[in-house]
Design a protein around this nucleic acid. Structure first.
Length: 573
RNA sequence: CGGAACGUAGCGCAGCCUGGUAGCGCACCACAAUGGGGUUGUGGGGGUCGGAGGUUCGAAUCCUCUCGUUCCGACCA
């Protein structure tokens, strides 16, 4: 590609509303431009990168036996009503109406459409297993789009859906997809980890997320120091602390704590560590027939954080997890939020495992302005329901049994689920089995955020001068930078020759052929755009039969003999 | 959805408090010089100051409403 005929839309200054490094660099290098909140245009340079990601994904999906299809972005409301998600999905689902007043949505995902397709096409267990994928635009009306294409409203996703006549068959394909994802992210050159994950609103059984490790990630990933266990913090189990609870050594006592509401304030006032104070959170429970939702108390150690997902999975707790309004708490429990405690509550109480191991603890007295100290389980109040309610923290024993927990930030770039029969049952996607009996197909689904992968790669590959693309994603492998192109016939001739030669060999070259361009500008642009290999051709070098080569990543320059240059570049890319 | 901030040329910003003919840097166009790492000079083009209403002789500036964008917290590839 000749720079004179290619939109190089680099910016010297960082647009002020970009915060994430990848967002800043994607704007500065001229990969994307924003149209509106969460909506981006991919410029020629960015699209080249995007296409490389897609190509790798297609190759690996094809190799894993999946078939490519392409489903519509606009989907009829009826299908979503059939699966029950028209109600469930919430405002993230952008709903539209056509001229005949029929309801549609912009697809945030395609389970409904693929299930509808396959129930019409596949009738026999003999046609299974089957796995279909697409690379398609999705739309999710995110509450808060941010970080450029990292969390945009419209984005490109590779989604795949597999169909099976048995769980074993699903497991086999699931494992195959797991491997295919590893192959994809390996080829893309990401530092990533597959981690155990929650299945979220899609539901089902097994699930892994693929996370790119980066400090800007939005998820916390728990790792074991003693094994390759890794799980999203929202899922990682917090084990019951080992050992015995110490025996009570203090008497229960009521102390005045005026104006002390938070754990920090209370522990400071009582001169206790936060782990000696228990906090009591009030959430809405599952309503019985015709009644309002009851209140449920959750008790955790003061230094621990409630895990919403674990909590809402409990049978007596409403999903989604909702904190009780303060006026209801005051009215029904008789005190404000800052003075709650588990003693004497006449509602369901669920105690976190770790909280059960604390002796002589402090907690709210259920009386405004008072706390209790020296409280002990068994002696002062009964241990009722115990559950895992909290997020694991650094240093916890790993649930795998070996080592302790370490936490890092991750960007979720892929997610694989075992869906089971959730959609096939709701939508009557059945097959006849070996015995001629009708049964719902077992399904899996597998997603990769294609546009997000581009941003994630930048988060792991940049320096002060710009992007440093891995070879697999670079929009161009080589920048051909002439010096005094307009003056030197020798430079011009050599550049044209090299350009032809490299291009003919299938190497993507950006020939900086603009007559007026200056060396500094060209190199700064090349570095910002992240082109891995730079060839600088000038008279001085040519006089001694060489050109300069500069590697983007290590910044090393070397003079290469013109004669051996083609072979040298071939060996580099 | 709750909290906060910001909308002035393609980008980055000043001007607003204290109302009086809209500015700077980068980018862009022309000419010239320069030419081995974002060069320099001269000259130019481009903005109904997000929008609507109000106050005023006069509004980018003050007031009201509205739209948009971003940031911080609960959801997801």
């Amino acid at each position: 590609m000749r720079a004179s005929r290619f939109l190089i839309a680099t910016l010297k200054e960082t647009p002020s509303d970009a915060v994430a490094i990848s967002h800043q660099l994607m704007l500065r290098a001229g990969l994307i431009r924003q149209l509106a909140s969460g909506l981006y245009t991919w410029l020629p340079l960015g699209l080249r990168v995007l296409r490389k990601v897609e190509k790798i994904i297609r190759e690996e999906m094809d190799a894993a036996g999946a078939q490519e299809v392409l489903m519509p972005v606009v989907q009829p409301a009826e299908l979503w009503e059939e699966s029950g998600r028209w109600e469930q999905y919430g405002p993230e689902l952008l709903r539209v109406t056509d001229r005949h007043n029929n309801g549609f949505c912009l697809g945030p995902t395609h389970e409904e459409v693929i299930t509808d397709l396959i129930r019409g096409e596949i009738k026999s267990y003999k046609q299974l297993p089957a796995n279909f994928y697409q690379v398609q635009t999705k739309f999710r009306d995110e509450v808060r789009p941010r970080f450029g294409v990292m969390r945009s409203r419209e984005f490109i996703m590779k989604d795949a859906y597999s169909f099976h006549s048995s769980q074993d068959s699903l497991q086999e394909t699931y494992d195959g997809m797991h491997q295919a994802y590893c192959n994809i992210f390996d080829r893309i050159g990401l530092d990533y980890r597959p981690v155990l994950a929650d299945t979220g609103s899609i539901g089902g059984d097994g699930s892994h997320e693929f996370h790119v490790l980066a400090s800007s990630g939005e998820d916390d990933i728990a790792f074991s120091t003693g094994s390759d266990y890794a799980a999203n913090v929202e899922l990682a189990e917090a084990l019951t602390p080992t050992g015995e609870r110490p025996a009570p050594s203090e008497e229960k006592q009521e102390v005045a704590t005026p104006d002390q509401h938070s754990i920090d304030e209370v522990s400071a006032a009582l001169n206790l560590q936060a782990d000696q104070v228990l906090k009591t959170l009030i959430v809405l429970g599952e309503a019985k027939e015709g009644e309002t939702q009851p209140l449920v108390a959750l008790v955790l150690r003061g230094d621990h954080e409630l895990n919403d997902i674990k909590a809402e999975k409990l049978p007596n707790i409403a999903e989604p997890l909702t904190f009780a309004p303060e006026d209801r708490i005051k009215e029904e429990l008789g005190c404000g939020i800052g003075s709650l405690g588990p003693i004497g509550l006449n509602i369901d109480v669920v105690i976190d495992r770790a909280a059960t191991m604390v002796a002589d603890f402090a907690c709210g007295a259920n009386k405004d302005g008072f706390h209790l100290t020296g409280v002990n389980w068994g002696r002062d109040l009964a241990l009722s329901t115990v559950a895992d309610l909290r997020n694991v923290v650094i240093g916890d024993p790993s649930p795998c049994g070996a080592g302790t927990i370490e936490i890092k930030r991750g960007i979720e770039v892929g997610h694989i689920f075992q869906l089971g029969t959730k959609y096939s049952e709701a939508m009557s996607a059945t097959i006849l089995d070996e015995n001629g009996k009708s049964k719902p197909m077992t399904m899996g689904c597998y997603g990769i955020g294609v546009t997000r992968v581009v941003a994630a790669s930048i988060e792991q590959n940049y320096d002060d001068n710009g992007i440093m693309w891995p070879a697999s994603l670079a929009p161009f492998q080589v920048a051909l930078v002439p010096i005094n192109l307009h003056k030197s016939e020798a430079v011009k001739a050599k550049c044209e020759e090299l350009y032809e030669q490299l291009t003919a060999a299938g190497i993507d070259v950006l020939f900086m052929d603009e007559v007026k361009a200056r060396i500094g500008v060209m190199l700064a642009n090349s570095e910002l755009m992240g082109i891995p290999h730079n060839i600088i051709v000038g008279d001085r070098g040519l006089d001694s039969g060489s050109v300069e080569y500069k590697n983007r990543r290590d910044g090393e320059k070397q003079d290469i003999a013109v004669d051996g240059l083609f072979e040298f570049i071939q060996s580099q890319v």
